[in-house]
């Protein structure tokens, strides 16, 4: 079996660096940051880490049902494709900033993209 992007970029420590960059972009983005108002930053960062780990093909136990349940309250508040696109944009930019190759970014984006319908409750 070929190595996952997660393993190729350096595992958990690399993902930690990515979480800071990624979460900072998300919090600074007025298109989406209102969805994060009042959330506990440590817990949120842990979720971002789990998300990035999954997108990078690392160890995770996420199911489509988890994604659906976890975001249902946000869908009620108007979470839609434009917000999902914004997050995808930040994912790509984060990995690029860390020097990840375009091929690997494409692989990560494809995994993240596969959660779109569950996240948006479609």
């Amino acid at each position: 079996m070929s190595q996952s992007v997660y393993e190729r970029i350096g595992g958990g420590a690399a993902v930690d660096a990515a979480v800071d960059l990624f979460y900072r972009k998300v919090l600074a983005d007025d298109r989406i940051n209102n969805f994060f108002e009042g959330t506990d930053m440590e817990k949120q960062a842990a979720k971002q880490k789990a998300f990035l780990t999954m997108a990078l093909g690392g160890p995770n136990n996420y199911t489509g049902e988890d994604m659906r349940k976890g975001h249902a309250h946000l869908v009620e508040r108007g979470l839609n494709d434009s917000h999902f696109d914004a997050v995808m944009e930040h994912l790509g930019a984060t990995l690029k900033e860390l020097g990840v190759s375009d091929d690997l970014i494409g692989e990560a984006a494809a995994i993240a993209e596969s959660t779109r319908n569950d996240v948006l409750g479609k």
Binding site: D20, Y23, R24, L27, M41, A45
Partner: peptide
């Protein structure tokens, strides 16, 4: 504490 945590993070401090 919560506001400053966010301010500090956006100002470049690592969450760690």
């Amino acid at each position: 504490v919560n506001n400053t945590k966010k301010q500090a993070f956006l100002a470049g401090a690592s969450l760690k």
